[in-house]
Design a protein around this nucleic acid. Structure first.
Lengths: 230, 230
DNA sequence: ATTACAAATAGTCAATTTGACCATAATTTA
DNA sequence: TAAATTATGGTCAAATTGACTATTTGTAAT
């Protein structure tokens, strides 16, 4: 290990990122276009090789940032994909990561081995190389599950948001419509959201109240036995 | 890839298994004693190296069987652990698998690089090498979560089981006591369990009815929108 | 046999939560 | 001033939960 160069990469092991972006009440995935390698010219999930000197979490963040410009987000590991022939010509096991962010908050700037980067609607994703479609599907399933059992998603909204915004987010991810009053009641009764002394403006109808999500309150609640369920 | 021997192993990548065993209303973990290598003589999670010619799922099964004799069980992937210094002297990323089985149904026969194999009570696990304690903890957390959202656990009970048996299983995993009539009501109202025309015998009190879990019924229910929640 | 036990199963009941609604409030634009 | 639009409030029956009590069915002890 000591004799390796700082950016020597581990053979047979890669990272792939499934980055979900929420924008205009729609769910997108972040794709990059390969500038080199065996999939040159093809759109794929952002990913690449792990260095000997970085943890896999660090590798995921480094690769995502250098390929797409999206940085400082909370990437969570999905799982490893390790079918023998998932990658052509060579045995490569990949570790998939995922995240959910507000697409509008991040400027895309393709780099490293990517010639381009763009958001793609979740249901308009083209055929991707390797098993990337499978990884994406797996990530989407996981996201759906996760969002119902954890207050994932609040961090991607603006600090102050309306109940309508959360509802749209949930509807986009779960792919259903939700009853507004009931959704509102359920969420507010959790005592998880703090009402702000501020309303919407610039809207041509009754202004909605802003709320904020308080991490500390959530932590307190969970520690006293509360579990987020939607 | 073609030029490798059939059992060449991938450097820098390993498998570790967290096998939970339910026995005498208690939850155990399966440990092996290393017969060789840098942790010779130490107890650890069963694991080892992945071959170029097998999928990671297959590797997990092969390793578990050859080390402990436990075979033909449903191993599910937990996640990868990839801190830079998790393994001494060499960069090794490990992919963890877990399963929940009935300890009494499997005879342990240590082999391969294991000199011994045994069940260890979940709260009496010694200090394990590498980050195995961390992996175990992670697996236990996941198991607790999983068991509340999926009818995991029914497959480890005998084909025909009593409601009391399931309850004991859940109590062991969730580490709580559950109200008997309420637990019973909740479970039966799911219409997931099929009552058998058979009762316990050899018990010194009123015999309980046997039930069985029907995979097809569960599948049908989930397909029509049902979600198992406990 | 009768009684004491242990555990299974049944039932009660108030409190809470859900789902499907309808009603009203606050704003802006026609 | 009315219409439009969206937020927010409220209702109500049905279903679910949590905390219990009661009854049944069997064995074991006297």
């Amino acid at each position: 290990m000591a004799s390796r160069a700082a950016n020597d990469i581990i053979e047979a092991l890669s990272i792939d990122c499934v980055i979900f972006g929420f924008r205009h009440s729609e769910l997108d995935v972040l794709l990059i276009k390969h500038a080199e390698g065996i999939s040159k010219g093809k759109w794929a999930l952002p990913g690449g090789w792990i260095r000997y000197t970085e943890s896999i979490d660090d590798a995921a963040n480094r690769l995502l940032t250098s390929l797409t410009g999206v940085s400082n987000i909370f990437l969570e590991q999905l799982r490893a994909f390790g079918d023998v022939k998932r990658y052509p010509g060579k045995r490569v096991i990949t570790i998939a990561y995922y995240a959910l962010i507000n697409a509008d908050n991040y400027a895309l700037s393709p780099g490293f081995t990517a010639s381009d980067a763009r958001w793609c609607k979740i249901h308009e994703v083209p055929r991707l190389p390797y098993d990337h479609n499978k990884i994406l599907k797996s990530g989407f399933q996981y996201l759906k599950h996760k969002v119902r059992h954890e207050p994932l998603g609040f961090n991607l909204l603006p600090k102050k948001f309306t109940l309508h915004q959360i509802q749209k987010l949930y509807e986009a991810i779960l792919e259903t419509e939700l009853d507004k009053p009931n959704f509102r009641r359920k969420l507010l009764n959790m005592n998880l959201l703090v009402p702000c002394d501020e309303k919407q403006h610039d809207v041509s109808h009754r202004a909605a109240n802003f709320y904020r999500f308080d991490k500390r309150i959530y932590k307190q609640l969970t520690e006293s036995g509360f579990t987020f369920e939607l």
